[in-house]
Structures are given as structure tokens and as C-alpha cells.
């Protein structure tokens, strides 16, 4: 097991270097000069040159990459933004909790929906509930998250505050906020709200939007896994022993059926943590996805690289955690 983890870690480093190199190379293939963008309106060539020297973009790619690695490894710094010279560490550390709140809360919500619905559907295939669930899954998978987000904003945010719907008028009120983020603890600069209640309140719609998409995938996956496991010989053995259905389900079906789900969940959370761009965008959440999108728009290489580095570290860590968790659940891997 230790050897296995060491091997995975070594591979993770190789992967990390490869990803960052690719990001650098792509950045330099794009025919835009970040120095020109940063040098203000109508810069003279001399100004551009001095800005380029200041930013370091006049150096060869390999030199810049080496510098980046040195900073990262020795100073634990991701550098400074080209656009506003703010430390990228600060940018990422500000954005990460937003995305983490969105993704982890969303994941809890989608699993709370997906497990009962998926298991129930598997136990009663072709029943009315199953059919309704499967139809909803199809809608959830097909609908674009931006569309879902906008519809939810309209119905729960805009209509209550506008005071009329379907030709009826009513006193307008604020039901759910459709924009913005509030810190769980202590407001940061420029934020108007903070505290757990506001945090929760502002995240309800993003969570629901996020969960609808993934819950659909997970209902389908859990249903398929549970149905497959129900047909396993050892489930029949458990019934032949005289185990009541509930016990068969709890101790022989669910654990086995959840093995592949754990892997998927780990991967999905990791990927979403790297930036849940669409949902963040709809609800104006200043998360990693937003940060990356803004940075791409201004060719702000240090910020782009910063988000890539952060995302790859998260993905790699989660992969490792999933592998360890999987081995812990499945003795065939642990002891094989």
C-alpha cells in the first residue's frame, strides 16, 4: 500500500509538471502581448518594452517557466498578477473558499437526492416512481446549468421581488438572492454581508442549480449499480440465509454498489473544485472559475497558471484520497 501511494505521488509530480508546461506553451502560442495590454492606452514601443521587462515576458519561455518553478518550490509563491500586481496566492486563497462552499455543499445536496432516489428506483424498476425519476434525470442531464440557473433565479428571485406573475400582482418581497457571495466568517473588503446565515442564504440557489445537474448523473449511476448488485450471487446467498430485505440492502447491496460511486464522487468534486465556472458565472460568485475566466480575458498568465496549479493539486489530492478510500472499503485491493 505504501509503495502504491509513493508511486502515485511520483506520478502526480510528473503530471503536475506536464500540465504547467502545457499551459505555458499554449499561452505563448497565442499571438498577444500581455505587456502591451498592461502598458496602458496607446503605449510607445519603449513603454511596452519596459513593461515587458518588468513583467519578465521578454525572457525566453524556458526561463520564465524555471523562474515560476523556483518561486513555487522555494518561496511557495505563485507570482503576481500582470493586471493589478496583486499576489496570485491572495487571489486564489480568496476564491477557493467560495468554490469550495459551492462544490461541497452542492455535493452533499446532490448525494442526499441521488442516493434515496437511485436506490428506490433500483428496488422498484419500472414503477411509476422509477419512471418519473428517470424522466427527471433525463431533463437534469440535458438541461444546461446556465439555463437551470437562470430559470431558478427568475422563479425564486425575480418574480417575488417584481411583485407580479402570470397577470397577478402581489406585494413584492425578496425570497432568495440571485447574486453575490457572503463569507462564512468575517466579511472581506467590499462585501456587504457575512456570517453563516447569509452564507447559506446566498448559496441556496447555486447549490440547487449545481445539484440538479449532478444529482441526475448520480441517480442514474446509483440505480444501475444497485440493480447490478441486486443480481449478484452473494445477494441471493444473503436472502437464502434468511436475511430480511432491509438487512440485505444495508449490508450486502449498498456497500458493494457504492464502491464505484465513491470513485466518481471523488473525481467530480475534484474537477468541480478546480472551477465551477458556469454556476459561479450565473450567480456572480467570485470563485476560482470566475477568477480563471477573468484572467484568460486579460492574458494574465500568473493568475491562469495559479488556478491551473491549484486545480491540479486538488484533483491529484482527491485522486489519491479516493484510491486510499477505495482500498479501505474493498479488501480485494487492500489485501490483494
Amino acid at each position: 500500500m505504501t509503495r502504491y501511494i509513493i508511486r502515485r505521488l511520483l506520478w502526480a509530480i510528473v503530471l503536475f509538471v506536464a500540465i504547467t508546461i502545457i499551459t505555458y506553451v499554449i499561452f505563448y502560442l497565442v499571438p498577444t502581448d500581455p505587456a502591451r495590454l498592461a502598458a496602458g492606452r496607446n503605449p510607445t514601443p519603449a513603454q511596452v518594452k519596459s513593461v515587458a521587462h518588468y513583467l519578465g515576458t521578454d525572457r525566453p519561455v524556458w526561463y520564465q517557466y524555471g523562474l515560476f518553478l523556483k518561486r513555487l518550490v522555494i518561496d511557495h509563491s505563485l507570482g503576481y498578477s500582470f493586471a493589478d500586481r496583486v499576489s496570485v496566492n491572495t487571489d486564489v486563497l480568496n476564491a477557493a473558499p467560495v468554490t469550495a462552499s459551492l462544490v461541497i455543499g452542492g455535493a452533499i445536496l446532490w448525494m442526499l437526492i441521488a442516493i434515496p432516489v437511485g436506490v428506490f428506483s433500483a428496488l422498484h424498476p419500472r414503477s411509476k416512481t422509477d419512471r418519473v425519476a428517470m424522466a427527471s434525470v433525463l431533463v437534469g442531464i440535458s438541461a444546461h446549468p446556465i439555463w437551470i440557473g437562470l430559470i431558478l433565479s427568475y422563479v425564486f428571485g425575480y418574480i417575488p421581488s417584481s411583485g407580479h406573475a402570470l397577470g397577478f400582482s402581489f406585494p413584492s418581497f425578496t425570497f432568495l438572492p440571485i447574486q453575490g457571495y457572503c463569507n462564512l466568517r468575517g466579511a472581506s473588503q467590499g462585501q456587504v454581508c457575512s456570517g453563516p446565515i447569509q452564507w447559506l442564504y446566498h448559496l441556496i440557489l447555486p447549490w440547487v442549480t449545481f445539484a440538479i445537474l449532478y444529482a441526475a448523473f448520480y441517480v442514474r449511476m446509483i440505480r444501475a449499480n444497485v440493480m447490478e448488485t441486486l443480481n449478484e450471487d452473494y445477494v441471493r446467498t444473503a436472502r437464502a440465509k434468511g436475511a430480511p430485505e432491509l438487512q440485505v440492502l444495508r449490508s450486502h447491496v449498498l456497500r458493494n454498489a457504492m464502491l464505484p460511486v465513491v470513485t466518481m464522487l471523488g473525481m467530480d468534486i475534484a474537477i468541480a473544485l478546480g472551477g465551477a465556472v458556469l454556476v459561479e458565472n450565473v450567480f456572480g460568485l467570485p470563485g476560482l472559475g470566475q477568477l480563471a475566466v477573468t484572467a484568460v480575458g486579460t492574458f494574465d498568465l500568473p493568475v491562469i497558471i495559479g488556478t491551473v496549479v491549484f486545480a491540479s493539486i486538488v484533483v491529484i489530492t482527491f485522486n489519491l484520497l479516493v484510491d486510499i478510500l477505495y482500498a479501505w472499503i474493498d479488501p480485494r485491493i487492500r489485501l490483494g
Partner: peptide, 8 residues
């Protein structure tokens, strides 16, 4: 296949 692989 008749014994549950995840239990002793």
C-alpha cells in the same frame, strides 16, 4: 461469486 467480497 456466492460470498460477499467486502465482508470477512
Amino acid at each position: 461469486t456466492s460470498l460477499n467480497p467486502v465482508h470477512t
